[in-house]
Design a protein around this nucleic acid. Structure first.
Length: 427
DNA sequence: AATCCACAGGAAGCCCGGGAAC
DNA sequence: GTTCCCGGGCTTCCTGTGGATT
């Protein structure tokens, strides 16, 4: 046991030790810089399209494409706040509403969220109207719709609704929401609404009804991926604010940029690499951040995201994944849906789980594939039918790690003979 | 050429828990 | 209390598929 005097120094030594970072927050991707390097063109275009809203006109709807970490959201937010600031000085009021459709992914939720944000906002604009309470669930969608339009009319402004990750919304619940928005202006007299859709997926247009598409994509903007030198500029800018002078080895930023450029020019990834490299160096009490910190950071990011992803999986998905792992351990490197279902059927009761139908298991398998935990391939095996082949990448240890992390140790407590039995039955 | 396997994956609908309004 | 609504997980039923086998 340490002496009591040691306790006093417990945190102090970490504070004194902080030689690397000046301000760690600026290295997070949630941080919004005032200057966005290499996005001037896109920002200008956005501003040009949105400018009419300052004269109480409805601007065109916009669709924005670009891979993750290409500065789409940051640029839109930047232009949005500028627009709001300028509009406050003029008499025509504009408001930008930013929604992330990865979380807010149904029509009901989108409408609710907007109505909620507006009613929070209206406190700033004194009125005798009481704040409207909107429940998470329980009302009919058209009731929410009229509450929302009521709010629009009450405030009377130009509203720019930004639907970030709009592809998620469309894939999950169709284009009804968008259809609603394309004709909302005919229900409004005192206010105007324009939509900005942001999508990671270039092919998402195919999911849309042609009428919705033509209305939504009056203007289109593409954000190309950053190349390595551009990523360097971005990192330089942040590093100057985030790190103490001279703590970065010369090659650190170019390496982070090069690694992230391989991942389709993702600025987020580049920033994560840089920040985590710094954190690793900090923890080692190193004087400087060196290139092998970057390599370690790269490794850490991949491991962490995989185990975290598996740890948070629903139990039934874990069970299906567990069956795959057992088959793999048993020497089978490629397996088909039938194998999984058979092993799962005999194993699920031992795991104290309800036995799901193969239809449902098939969906769970597809989800695991989408998360990148397994790979799948449709195969036609002639007489032996059509099925899905699946296999693991190299990262099996990480997957086991995530599975063993189960809070009630469901997958570690299972007796060996039951596993063996399930595997032999599954053949 | 016809058959037929072993599923894939769409559509519809059930059930449950959350909640509101009456 | 009853009746209505939404969303998520799930089942049931179903049609479609393409090449090895007959």
């Amino acid at each position: 046991m340490p002496e009591s005097t040691d306790h006093i120094g417990l945190f102090e030594k970490y504070l004194l030790m902080n030689k690397i970072f000046k301000d760690r927050e600026v290295l997070r991707h949630s941080y919004r810089p005032h200057i966005l390097p290499h996005r001037k063109e896109q920002i200008d275009q956005l501003a040009a399209i949105l400018a009419p809203s300052l004269q109480a006109e409805t601007p065109s709807n916009i669709l924005i494409y670009g891979k993750t970490g290409t500065g789409k959201t940051a640029s839109v937010r930047y232009v949005g706040t500028e627009l709001e600031t300028v509009s406050r000085k003029m008499k025509s009021y504009c408001q930008v509403i930013h929604l992330n459709c990865e979380i807010i992914d149904t029509q009901y939720r989108v409408l609710t969220q907007i109505a909620k944000l507006l009613s929070d906002e209206s406190e700033e604009y004194p009125s005798d109207k009481a704040k409207i309470q909107i429940p998470m669930t329980g009302l009919a969608t058209d009731q929410i719709y009229s509450k929302m339009t009521e709010q629009f009319e009450h405030i009377g402004a130009t509203f720019i609704i930004v639907l970030d990750e709009i592809d998620k919304l469309v894939k999950k619940s169709g284009d009804d929401t968008l259809y609603t928005f394309t004709r909302i202006n005919s229900d409004l007299t005192n206010s105007r609404v324009a939509i900005i859709g942001i999508s990671n997926d270039l092919g998402f247009k195919t999911f849309l009804d042609p009428r919705v598409l033509s209305s939504l994509s009056e203007e289109e903007l593409v954000f190309p991926p950053y190349n390595a030198p551009q990523l360097c500029d971005i990192l330089e800018q942040r590093a100057e604010m985030g790190f103490n002078p001279d703590v970065l080895d010369e090659e650190v930023i170019p390496l982070c940029s090069a690694l992230a450029a391989q991942e389709h020019g993702d600025a987020r990834r580049a920033l994560d690499l840089l920040r985590i490299s710094g954190e690793l160096a900090d923890r080692e009490r190193a004087e400087k951040v060196a290139t092998d910190h970057v390599h370690k950071a790269q490794e850490k990011i991949e491991t962490d995201s995989m185990t975290e992803c598996i740890r948070t999986l629903p139990t039934q998905s874990k069970a299906v994944l567990f069956c795959m792992l057992l088959l793999h351990k048993n020497g089978q490197k490629v397996f088909i849906s039938g194998d999984i279902t058979r092993v799962y059927r005999s194993l699920a009761p031992a795991l104290h789980l309800d036995v799901l139908t193969s239809r449902r298991v098939s969906d769970l398998i597809s989800e695991l594939n989408m998360l990148g935990i397994i790979n799948t391939r449709l195969v036609n095996r002639g007489r032996h039918g059509r099925t899905k082949e699946m296999w693991f990448d190299a990262s099996i240890d990480r997957i086991w790690e995530g599975i063993h992390d189960d809070p009630n140790e469901r997958f570690t407590a299972i007796p060996m003979e039951i596993v063996q039995d399930a595997l032999t039955h599954g053949m």
